[in-house]
Design a protein around this nucleic acid. Structure first.
Length: 322
RNA sequence: CGCGGGGUAGAGCAACGGUAGCUCGCAAGGCUCAUAACCUUGAGGUAGUGGGUUCGACUCCCGCCCCCGCAA
């Protein structure tokens, strides 16, 4: 096996979760020859140009950084091939990588995917298991081929989804576990101690790229489903409903909620109605069960606990959220 | 200069060109078998900040700081 400090790695990645993997490689003494990350974007209220998490780390470590708009561009491909990388590692880069580039690394192209492939291929593998109420999820290290998250599996690790798990907490865990598994897997792969195992296509499922739209609450769903959505989509893309006040209809984010099946509730109310339980908790009727709101944020305001919200806007009781 | 909301008692909010109220909390007392029940009383705000208009501004105008929603 080649010494690990001789392997030139080309790393593809963009957000926070990829940064964890990049840092792990660096920490473990792998020479990262260059990093490919998405172009800087205008972000935030001021529309400031912001670097990706991966670019920040690359800059700190004085690693060459490429930010091509299109990977298929012949110039770009040439540029990347000229780096003469031995091994490609990809983590949430955000674009499909052309075969020509993948094939240019003699030791192969590895991908970290934060789900138990072949389940949850695609851009939102972290949120979907929570959304679906799965008991467990995991991370997979696989070889990349031309189809999205389709290549043979090198290693996989499973773990339980804790109750109360959110997209945020699960993402942190998967980032960590994924990076660890990568570090464990690379030497075995280079030593040819792993034989890639093809994915079972009949088991494959796919995830969509999440947008704000997905975060809108439908109060005609059942409370359990809504509660899972709130956890899965925290903090991105967030979960919201609408509340009508005198200045117009405002969006109301639901940050945290729990379900309840209490039966002391007037059945005649429509779904989305807000009422107080006997112990004065803010509750919303759904098609099946009730949702107790714990933390919420009105448009333009800071996040606050339901009790605080109620102090300032007691009139919400009896209203209908849409 | 992407669009927009907001900074008023410990917390959440309101009103008004003439020196601020509500709910909760807090303190003291009362009532009760009892309650995140009820009744009394009380403490607590130089209104983000600097300037301007005005007889007079928390309320109108301008600058600055800070917080937040949308968008990306």
């Amino acid at each position: 096996m080649p010494e690990k400090n001789e392997i030139k790695i080309l790393f593809f990645g963009t957000p926070e979760i990829s940064e964890t993997a990049l840092s792990a490689l660096l920490r473990n003494g792998y020479p990262v020859r260059a990093v490919v990350t998405n172009p800087d974007k205008q972000v935030g209220r001021e529309q400031k140009i912001t670097f990706s998490a991966v670019k920040e780390t690359a800059l700190k470590n004085q690693i060459e950084t490429l930010q091509p708009e299109k990977l298929k561009d012949p110039e770009t491909i040439k540029q990347i091939k000229n780096l003469k990388a031995d091994l490609i590692v990809v983590s949430a880069y955000g674009k499909m990588i052309p075969k020509e580039i993948l094939d240019s690394a003699p030791l192969g192209a590895l991908n970290i995917h934060p789900s138990l492939l072949p389940k949850y291929r695609g851009p939102s593998p972290i949120q979907y298991p929570i959304l679906g109420g799965d008991q467990e999820t995991g991370v997979t290290i696989m070889l990349i081929d031309e189809q999205m998250d389709h290549g043979p599996i090198l290693a996989q690790k499973t773990f339980k989804i804790a109750s109360g798990e959110t997209g945020e907490t699960l993402s942190a865990k998967l980032a960590e576990e994924g990076a660890n598994l990568l570090i464990e897997t690379i030497p075995l792969w280079l030593d040819k101690k792993i034989s890639p195992r093809p994915q079972d296509e009949s088991e494959a499922t796919y995830t969509d790229l999440l947008t704000k739209e997905y975060g809108k609450i439908n109060w005609d769903d059942d409370a359990g489903k809504i509660e899972r959505k709130i956890r899965a989509f925290h903090p991105w893309p967030g979960t919201y409903t609408h509340y009508k006040i005198k200045d117009g209809v405002k969006s109301l984010k639901i940050i945290k909620a729990t379900t309840a099946s209490s039966d002391e509730i007037p059945e005649a109310r429509p779904c989305g109605s807000v009422f107080l339980t006997a112990d004065r908790r803010m509750t919303v009727k759904t098609s099946k069960g009730y949702l107790i709101l714990e933390e919420l944020q009105l448009e333009g305001k800071k996040p606050m606990r339901a009790a605080e919200f109620l102090r300032g806007r007691p009139e919400i009781v009896g209203k209908i959220l849409t």
